[in-house]
């Protein structure tokens, strides 16, 4: 048992090892619980697994490490500005490829800040898409009958099913 642990090792769902600092892990409740388990159990050999794939976990840990100093100590307005800019750069990613995985991970790891950020990013990416692009991304089938489509068109002239 050691209270001077500075980083813990976790496994991704793909079985890769990742290191995360104690202060960064505090951004997530489930990670924090794992941390306590590791710190206070005599048997430190077992490496906890996080049900997030490696590609996503890299990003999640990057986010945690960046936000940890501010979350733990508070920050000035200029730091907050800087962090906002960093968030925007950080979120420049493909919707399906990684953003959806980040959303799932943030939800699973109870990381409110990242979850909000990822939801907003997804909304910003989706807002300009066509209906058929949206269906493709979410694997949704058009289940309106032709009568129902006609009724919707009457209600909202110019609405498109494509």
């Amino acid at each position: 048992m050691s209270s001077s642990v500075e980083a813990i090792t976790v496994l991704s769902s793909d079985g890769d090892e990742f290191k995360i600092t104690v202060s960064a892990a505090k951004l997530s409740k489930p990670l924090n619980w794992m941390l306590e388990d590791v710190c206070f159990s005599d048997d430190c050999d077992e490496v906890p697994t996080i049900e997030v794939n490696s590609k996503t976990l890299v990003k999640v840990i990057e986010y945690c490490e960046k936000h940890a100093p501010r979350a733990n100590s508070g920050a000035s307005d200029s730091d907050a500005e800087e962090l906002k800019k960093w968030d925007i750069e950080f979120m420049k990613m493909d919707v399906k490829d990684i953003l959806f995985h980040i959303l799932m991970a943030a939800n699973y790891l109870h990381m409110e800040g990242l979850y909000d950020l990822a939801c907003q990013t997804a909304a910003d990416l989706m807002k300009g898409m066509t209906v058929s692009q949206i269906r493709k991304i979410f694997h949704i089938k058009n289940d309106f009958s032709s009568e129902e489509q006609e009724q919707l068109r009457r209600q909202h002239p110019g609405c498109s099913f494509d």
Partner: peptide, 10 residues
């Protein structure tokens, strides 16, 4: 966008 996305599915 929400108004447009009414047409996505029921």
């Amino acid at each position: 966008s929400i108004v447009r996305f009414q047409c996505v599915c029921k």
